[in-house]
Simulated scan of single mutants.
Amino acid sequence: MAKRIALFPGSFDPFTKGHEDIVLRGLQLFDEIIIAIGYNSQKSTRYFEIDFMVERIQTAFQKYPNIKVVKFSELTAGFARKNGARFLLRGLRNTTDFEYENSISQVNRKLYEEMESVFLITTPQLAWISSSIIREVHKYGGDVSEFIPYSL
């Protein structure tokens, strides 16, 4: 049977405990998960450098040989195909996330018919955490350690 590889793409600026929760729960469904940090064309600059974030996420998952962390700058569907990922793993915090992710999944399915999007509902205790909130707290010197699975 073919390896079940899932791609978990995002800008992850920064990667949060909510993201970590989706990845760890995804391991119950997939043999391998590729966390792919992409350059978001909607965002002009990043708060945390991509290479810094790759390093931090790798540290968080160092005990999991079936989790890879990479960066990419192309269409998600094409990157998934190149890496043998037939599943796109995404987390949903609320209905706004669903609307956004649903549209993207339709386009990805059109570009790569063999790819299925799999949505996991965020654990309630983590649903309020967002990268933008963490950036704001960090920017003004607040402690964000309880919201991220690695140290800054």
Rank of each mutant, 00 (worst) to 15 (best):
residue 67 I to S: 01
residue 76 T to P: 01
residue 142 G to Y: 02
residue 136 E to S: 14
residue 96 T to R: 14
residue 18 G to Y: 00
residue 17 K to S: 04
residue 113 E to M: 08
residue 134 I to G: 02
residue 111 L to S: 00
residue 39 Y to S: 12
residue 106 Q to C: 13
residue 5 I to D: 00
residue 148 I to G: 02
residue 75 L to T: 06
residue 142 G to F: 01
residue 52 F to G: 11
residue 3 K to P: 04
residue 26 G to F: 01
residue 110 K to C: 09
residue 96 T to D: 09
residue 105 S to F: 06
residue 11 S to D: 07
residue 77 A to E: 07
residue 50 I to H: 03
residue 43 K to G: 07
residue 29 L to G: 03
residue 101 E to G: 05
residue 59 T to W: 10
residue 52 F to M: 11
residue 28 Q to Y: 11
residue 28 Q to G: 12
residue 131 S to V: 07
residue 10 G to A: 10
residue 149 P to W: 08
residue 17 K to D: 00
residue 96 T to K: 14
residue 84 G to S: 13
residue 70 V to H: 00
residue 91 G to M: 09
residue 32 E to V: 13
residue 148 I to H: 00
residue 87 F to T: 06
residue 69 V to G: 03
residue 129 I to R: 06
residue 141 G to Q: 06
residue 90 R to Y: 00
residue 143 D to Q: 08
residue 90 R to G: 03
residue 113 E to D: 12
residue 56 R to D: 04
residue 110 K to L: 11
residue 139 K to L: 14
residue 25 R to H: 15
residue 38 G to S: 09
residue 44 S to F: 10
residue 29 L to S: 11
residue 76 T to D: 02
residue 95 T to Y: 08
residue 20 E to P: 01
residue 82 K to W: 04
residue 110 K to M: 14
residue 20 E to I: 08
residue 26 G to C: 03
residue 14 P to V: 11
residue 68 K to N: 04
residue 99 E to Y: 10
residue 2 A to Y: 12
residue 12 F to Y: 13
residue 80 A to R: 01
residue 136 E to P: 05
residue 62 Q to K: 15
residue 133 I to A: 15
residue 141 G to F: 09
residue 33 I to P: 01
residue 15 F to L: 11
residue 36 A to P: 04
residue 79 F to Y: 15
residue 84 G to L: 11
residue 14 P to I: 13
residue 115 M to I: 13
residue 114 E to G: 09
residue 29 L to E: 03
residue 87 F to R: 04
residue 54 V to A: 02
residue 21 D to I: 05
residue 116 E to C: 10
residue 33 I to L: 08
residue 4 R to C: 02
residue 95 T to S: 13
residue 6 A to G: 02
residue 62 Q to I: 07
residue 9 P to A: 03
residue 90 R to I: 09
residue 83 N to K: 12
residue 112 Y to A: 04
residue 111 L to Q: 02
residue 52 F to V: 14
residue 115 M to W: 03
residue 118 V to W: 00
residue 6 A to D: 00
residue 49 E to I: 04
residue 15 F to R: 00
residue 60 A to L: 10
residue 102 N to I: 13
residue 22 I to C: 03
residue 53 M to S: 05
residue 65 P to Q: 12
residue 65 P to C: 03
residue 114 E to C: 06
residue 136 E to K: 15
residue 34 I to K: 02
residue 152 L to Q: 11
residue 150 Y to H: 07
residue 136 E to T: 14
residue 55 E to C: 13
residue 89 L to P: 01
residue 107 V to P: 02
residue 150 Y to P: 09
residue 114 E to R: 12
residue 137 V to R: 11
residue 90 R to P: 05
residue 108 N to W: 05
residue 56 R to H: 11
residue 54 V to Q: 10
residue 20 E to W: 06
residue 46 R to K: 14
residue 92 L to Q: 06
residue 41 S to V: 13
residue 70 V to K: 06
residue 83 N to T: 02
residue 27 L to D: 01
residue 14 P to T: 10
residue 85 A to N: 00
residue 1 M to T: 10
residue 98 F to Q: 05
residue 77 A to S: 14
residue 145 S to M: 06
residue 122 T to V: 12
residue 7 L to F: 04
residue 66 N to P: 01
residue 81 R to T: 09
residue 57 I to D: 04
